[in-house]
Design a protein around this nucleic acid. Sequence first.
DNA 1: TGTATTTGACCCGC
DNA 2: GCGGGTCAAATACA
Length: 240
Amino acid sequence: MSSYIDQKAVAALFHGQVANSLKTLLENHEISPVAIEPFINTIHDSFSLALSSIYSPNMASHVPRRSSKKTNYGAEDLETYTVDSPTPRADDGFTWRKYGQKKIKASPHHRCYYRCNAKHQNCRAKKQVQKIEDSPPMYRATYLGKHDCKAPASVVNDDTDGSKMIKLDQVVSEPVMPQLATIDHQAIAMEDQTTDHIMNQDCDINDFVVDVDEDQFWASPYHPFSPGNFVFFDYNPFHG
DNA sequence: TGTATTTGACCCGC
DNA sequence: GCGGGTCAAATACA
């Protein structure tokens, strides 16, 4: 458990290395103060996420846990995990279709039910979103089951120095791949709390960490400043 | 007109 | 019976 926490914190800190890009842009006078804001938000949120990963009592919520209730109407034994976020984000890389909303007794807020809306793909993944705090606003998304559909992002190999590159199929305003990391054989979703801020400011920065052949890294396409370019933050705590 | 959302009813486990 | 999850008709919207 602590291993996962450390890795998540490290991952978030690596994410904060977007500061390097900001530094370069500032040195070259390439961007305006307005354009800087997404970077600042990214850096700020990355460190906040890192700290929360270490200290937050909610960190246990990121651990995959079995659903205690056996409803789901014939669904298989689903592995679930939860992600807390200050925004009720829906753009987590998949298209979700809302199919229900329920008032929960134990909470003053409604719980919303979504299922994967992948076209022509019989995906049975589901998602529940519920507001768990008012101030500051905090939402908890519970993901149930695995996606049978193809994620809207693809992984391609890069010939250079063994790096692997994430290529988004969608660009601005399209959903962002959720940050799925597999650590110790546990599926863990790492919420990118920064993406919403950035997306809301019409800045196309999509960041995610993936696990490919046990090598983890950040890939950050920095549109519109350097369209088509990806910045890699090699991250591999195992190979230190 | 097709698609997504809303919402009350129904189903199921405890 | 209660509470949570799902269904499906009605409604909204592009």
